[in-house]
Structure formats: structure tokens, C-alpha cells
């Protein structure tokens, strides 16, 4: 063969080997020093001792919206933003049915995957967290979330919170203008409760505000790693579903569908 600018077999192999080495190098990103890893993203999910989940019983939900108000007060959310929404979802036997929609705390959260700065990340117990000090406000997560669970702070929230004090007292700082915010599963209540020896889902102080506020007990919260927790039992003994399961996001919020015969 004429030795032209065509690659020889040896050169080709070298090139291929080099590319393979490059790819292998990418794999090394997984094994960077812990500090870098920490800066990069999230703790391995499932490594924690807890696996939090929320169960919402649509047969009980009356659409009163108390959960939304309690959420807004405890998390000091601006009036034009709602971390938790209650949406009308049709009728079952003349009875109105609603879907209460907090953040789904997805196992494979599109928002975490797309965030360019790692401001959205997983905690070991599965909570999808927001680092408001990292967020640059690009709103890619908003576009990526299939559940519309994220809201951008288009302006600063400076005035009084209309839901305070009637629905509770703020427990976390207000987010600044220009960052995206979302439901945090009241991680601060969970953490504070655990530190005080309480059981989230059982002790109200250690349980998300929306669950505590629900007047009909439609919301349950607890640890799926504990087979005796109420959520574990509910899911074991009832048919349940999650929103847009076809997307493979793996929500940690489960719904018990409204059904005939079940009472409110």
C-alpha cells in the first residue's frame, strides 16, 4: 500500500487505544478525591439508614388546600409560588378527586441530572435537595421537571408572608431573588426530629408540615426501610401508583387512588 496520508494499521490502533484511554479517563471522574466528588454532586442514594416516602390517599383528600398553606408558612414561600399544589382531578361516583402534588423526590431526578452546577443533589436518604448558594438561576431544572414542581424567584420576596402566623412559623430562610426553589420534604424537620430522638412520620415535629396540617389524614410520611412504618404498611396492603411512572423517574411520593367504597 502506498504510504500516503491514510492511516496504517499501527497508527489506527494507536489512535483507537488513545481514545479508549480517554474514555477510561472519564470513568476516573467517578473515583476523584472525595473533596472534588463532594463538590461534584450527591451522596450515593440508599447509603443512608432511611428511605423516606410520602403516601397520599386520594380517597381521603378533600382538596381543602391546608397542606399548601402550611407548606407556605413553614418554608416561608412567596405568595406567587407553591411548592405543593392541590389539583382537581375529576370525579369518582359524584365525589371530587384531587391530586396533591409536592416535589416527587425522584430516585432518578431529571433536575439533578441536568443542573450545571450541582445545586440540585441527592441526599443519602433520597431527598432531592437544593443548594440555594450554588444555584445560578439558569432554570434548566424547571424545564426538565416533568411535574412542574419547581418555581423560580422572579423577584425578591420581601413583604410579610400572608400565611404566617395562622398556618405556622417559618423554619428555613427565605430564598433570594434569582434562584429556583422547590419542596424539600421538610428535611429540616426530619433532621431536627431525628436529632431529638423522634420518629419522622409519627412525631408531628419530625414530620413534613403538609402531612401534619392535613385535617383528614390523607398524607402519610415515613421510612420505607422500616417495614413497620405506616407508609410501608399502606403500600403493602393497598394498590398504589406514582405520577408518570413511564418516565422512569422513580418518585418517592405514592398515591392511593380514589375508589368506590373508600370513605373520606
Amino acid at each position: 500500500m502506498k504510504k500516503s496520508n491514510l492511516l496504517t494499521r499501527r497508527e489506527f490502533l494507536k489512535l483507537a487505544g488513545g481514545s479508549a484511554a480517554g474514555l477510561a479517563g472519564l470513568q476516573f471522574l467517578q473515583h476523584l478525591p472525595p473533596l472534588v466528588q463532594k463538590a461534584m454532586a450527591s451522596a450515593p442514594v440508599g447509603a443512608g439508614t432511611h428511605r423516606w416516602a410520602m403516601v397520599i390517599d386520594q380517597a381521603k383528600c378533600t382538596g381543602c388546600g391546608y397542606c399548601t398553606k402550611a407548606c407556605k408558612a413553614h418554608n416561608d414561600v412567596a405568595p406567587e409560588i407553591a411548592w405543593n399544589r392541590v389539583i382537581y382531578a375529576g370525579k369518582v361516583k359524584d365525589k371530587d378527586v384531587f391530586i396533591a402534588r409536592p416535589c416527587m423526590q425522584c430516585q432518578h431526578a431529571p433536575c439533578v441530572e441536568v443542573c450545571p452546577v450541582g445545586a440540585s443533589y441527592y441526599r443519602a436518604d433520597g431527598i432531592v435537595m437544593m443548594d440555594y448558594d450554588k444555584c445560578i438561576g439558569c432554570r434548566y431544572c424547571e424545564v426538565a421537571c416533568p411535574y412542574g414542581a419547581r418555581a423560580f424567584n422572579w423577584e425578591a420576596f420581601t413583604g410579610p408572608n400572608p400565611e404566617v402566623p395562622e398556618w405556622g412559623q417559618p423554619e428555613v430562610p427565605r430564598r433570594p431573588r434569582g434562584v429556583v426553589e422547590k419542596c424539600s420534604l421538610c428535611f429540616h424537620r426530619i433532621d431536627r426530629g431525628l436529632a431529638a430522638g423522634q420518629t419522622p412520620g409519627v412525631d408531628p415535629d419530625a414530620t413534613p408540615a403538609c402531612v401534619v396540617a392535613c385535617p383528614v389524614g390523607a398524607r402519610k410520611f415515613g421510612d420505607l426501610n422500616d417495614p413497620e412504618s405506616e407508609v410501608s404498611k399502606l403500600l403493602a396492603n393497598n394498590p398504589s401508583y406514582r405520577l408518570r411512572e413511564d418516565l422512569g423517574t422513580g418518585p418517592r411520593v405514592y398515591y392511593l387512588p380514589a375508589r368506590e367504597g373508600a370513605s373520606a
Binding site: L29, V36, C115, P116, G118, K134, I136, G137, P176, V180
Partner: peptide, 26 residues
């Protein structure tokens, strides 16, 4: 103009999320 926190424009260079297409673009 578009990002909510222009003062943090440099974050993607420091806080890496190699999984994000937008990080790679940045």
C-alpha cells in the same frame, strides 16, 4: 441577562456536574 444570579456565572467552572449537558456546554 438571563440567569437569575449573574454574580454566580463562574459557578459551573468550580462546582462541576459532569452529568449535565449544560455544564459541558458551559
Amino acid at each position: 441577562l438571563d440567569i437569575g444570579r449573574p454574580d454566580r456565572f463562574w459557578h459551573a467552572l468550580v462546582f462541576w456536574n459532569p452529568h449535565s449537558v449544560l455544564w459541558e456546554v458551559t
